[in-house]
């Protein structure tokens, strides 16, 4: 269950942003033109961009509530974020990028889950490589794996498949659906109408920072 009402006034060069969402849908898609404020909404949910007021709770856990003075920092929210640009750490190998979230959250090693994610994303051969030596699509697959292995309670995906080919998209989509069915809710930003229709249980249109 995802419940949020977040508002941010116009400042720091950004237009005002407003989103209200109460949903049981496992995958919510945010759609809208470029520059509509979709990424800013994801950042507010992740705790990377402070809202001025509102509330946010995921599966009963309150992460932000301006009335009660609750505002968990990003690192305590357990909200995974797959960015449009992969943002892999250039000083760490692929393997260490993947292990980063588990290490930071003090999670025990789950070899089965790890093997499952690695196989699904087909990144086994990339593990020992430097991130700089990967193609855009490879980087994005590792970034998805990195977010998943941190075992987030909510996964935010900002056009995660824009740099993947159709074959890889087709492979990853069922996994995202399965992951959602297993209980990891997702908010998914995409321009691709087919992708949205295939994945999302609910679609929210965003325009000029207002979601409806």
């Amino acid at each position: 269950m995802l419940s949020l009402a977040l508002e941010r006034d116009a400042h720091d060069g950004l237009f005002p942003i407003h989103i209200t969402l109460e949903t049981e849908a496992r995958i919510v898609a945010l759609s809208g033109p470029s520059g509509a404020g979709k990424t800013s909404i994801l950042k507010m949910i992740a705790g990377l961009l402070p809202p001025d007021r509102g509330h946010l709770s995921v599966s009963g856990s309150v992460l932000f509530d301006s009335d009660k003075g609750i505002n968990l920092p990003a690192w305590k929210r357990r909200i995974g974020f797959v960015f449009q640009d992969s943002r892999l750490f250039p000083h760490l190998s692929v393997k260490n990028n993947l292990a980063y979230g588990r290490f930071m959250n003090g999670l025990p090693r789950d070899a089965a889950h790890e093997a499952h994610v690695i196989a699904m994303l087909d990144i086994q051969d990339l593990l020992a490589r430097d991130t700089g030596a990967l193609s855009g699509g490879e980087q994005q697959r590792v970034a998805i794996g990195r977010a998943l292995l941190a075992k987030p309670r909510l996964l935010l995906l900002d056009e995660p498949m824009s740099s993947l080919d159709d074959k890889r998209k087709a492979e990853i989509k069922p996994y995202l659906l399965r992951l959602a069915a297993e209980g990891v809710p997702m908010i998914y930003v995409s321009h691709d109408a087919d992708e949205i229709a295939e994945l999302a249980g609910e679609v929210v249109s965003v325009d000029h920072g207002r979601a409806r």
Binding site: A46, G47, L48, P73, A74, W75, K76, R77, R78, I79, G80, F81, F83, D85, R87, F89, P90, Y100, G101, M104, N105, R146, A147, A150
Partner: peptide
């Protein structure tokens, strides 16, 4: 952006500084 990514992966500000 790398520091933001680290924070979403559970790294505290001190750990972001030390590891990124």
């Amino acid at each position: 952006r790398h520091e933001e990514a680290a924070a979403t992966l559970g790294a505290s500000p001190v750990m972001v500084f030390l590891t990124v």
